[in-house]
Amino acid sequence: MDLSVVEPPLGTPADPTFGLDTFGDVALGPDGEPLPPAEAIRQVVAEAELADAVGLDFFGVGEHHRPDFAVSAPDVVLAAIAGRTRRIRLGTSVTVLSSDDPIRVFERFATLDAVSRGRAEITVGRGSFTESFPLFGLSLDDYERLFSEKLDLLAALLQEGPVSWQGSVRPPLEGVEVFPRTAAGLPTWVGVGGTPESVVRAAAYGLPLVIAVIGGSPEGFVPLVELYHRALDHYEQPTLPISMHSPGHVAATDELAREQMYPHHAAAFTRIGRERGWGPYTPEQFEQGAGPTGALFVGSPETVAQKIAWAMRTLGLSRFQLKYAVGTLPHEERLESIRLYGTRVVPRVRELLADPSSGAE
């Protein structure tokens, strides 16, 4: 398969959408101690309510199985959110498909689609954490095989007809039908962190792409976007949406946004780095990420809007997803960030993308 040809033009698709992502990060309480996980989950529901009220298009909840993130069952949290919102689309960021059962994933999110009146989505991925593998009795030696086979099965289930399937990770299926059916299909994205094979796999199944940009620069992901377009062409798939997930924080001024975000972001990345053999997170790393072409979308509404418009143009994005819950950042500061993002950042990004003279189209 030759995917080295065809140079697709990049540019912002018409009518982009804007969302938020959270992992249910456990914030600190007034006493400086981590909040109970139950309170962190209730905060996620309140944050989603505000996201709906300020007109955002998507709210994504990630799956983790560790103490710093409270949400291990995103579909349950999203069902609670569905009952308290009206229009915002609800999905995952991400569902760790490798350690889940594709049939149960489909059933749970088809159910969420019903209770939300057609607002459910899934983003599947291998996950950047691996705690779910030993938790559910799986071996990391099967990391790649588990995801590739389970994605193959899920792609078949998404057709919502009889499924016959055979692989090595579960017994074969012959003419199986899975319920409930959805009214208009279940949008499913593939989340990737930079692996070319995952990008090509998403294209092969005709599934849209979410690129997680948490380090470096969005510019560095241009080759993966180009690869995705070439792969879509190779597999004779239609043009599909591409989204980007990146961390950030919005406040009244650049200085305040940096002051609020830095200690929580640094603590989270230092903790994760200690687990993975990295050094402590530094102010220099933060400033590089917060710069004009970095991966952190932090600043005043105008600063963040300019950077999002640039990233959407650079990668030809249909959606941008701000990972707004940064470590132990307090709930009140998250709410203000959501309010500013929905009422000031997103309208300004739309203006920039619609104005050819802004350089964002």
Rank of each mutant, 00 (worst) to 15 (best):
A79C: 14
K307A: 07
V76E: 01
F147G: 09
F109P: 08
S93M: 15
Y281I: 07
F109I: 10
G194D: 00
P218K: 07
A73S: 14
F179H: 11
A51K: 09
S217N: 09
E33P: 02
V199E: 03
G291N: 09
P247S: 09
K323A: 14
L112H: 03
D101R: 07
V192R: 12
V26L: 03
G91Q: 06
G125M: 06
F69Y: 06
R276Q: 15
V190E: 10
T195H: 12
G127S: 03
L90H: 04
V61H: 04
P238H: 01
G194M: 08
V225L: 06
A360P: 00
S168A: 13
S318P: 14
A38V: 06
P208S: 04
S72D: 03
R201C: 03
S358H: 00
L353D: 01
F147Y: 14
W278D: 15
A46V: 10
F59P: 06
L340P: 01
A110T: 01
A184H: 13
P347S: 06
V124P: 00
G359M: 06
A51L: 08
R104D: 03
A354V: 03
V222W: 00
D52S: 07
A204C: 03
V76L: 12
G125R: 09
E259F: 06
E336A: 12
D75V: 14
D15K: 05
V44P: 06
G83I: 13
T182N: 06
E284I: 00
P238T: 05
V250N: 05
A53F: 02
G289A: 08
A212V: 11
L317H: 02
E131K: 13
R258Q: 13
I211D: 02
L135P: 11
D15L: 09
S116Q: 04
G19Q: 02
P8I: 05
T314A: 07
L158Q: 11
I81C: 10
E226V: 13
A51M: 08
D31M: 05
L138D: 03
T188L: 11
F129K: 09
E131P: 00
L154C: 12
E259Q: 12
P247I: 05
T188D: 05
M261Y: 01
V200I: 11
L186Q: 08
I88Y: 00
A212R: 07
W165Y: 13
L186M: 12
Q237P: 00
A354R: 15
L20N: 11
M244E: 04
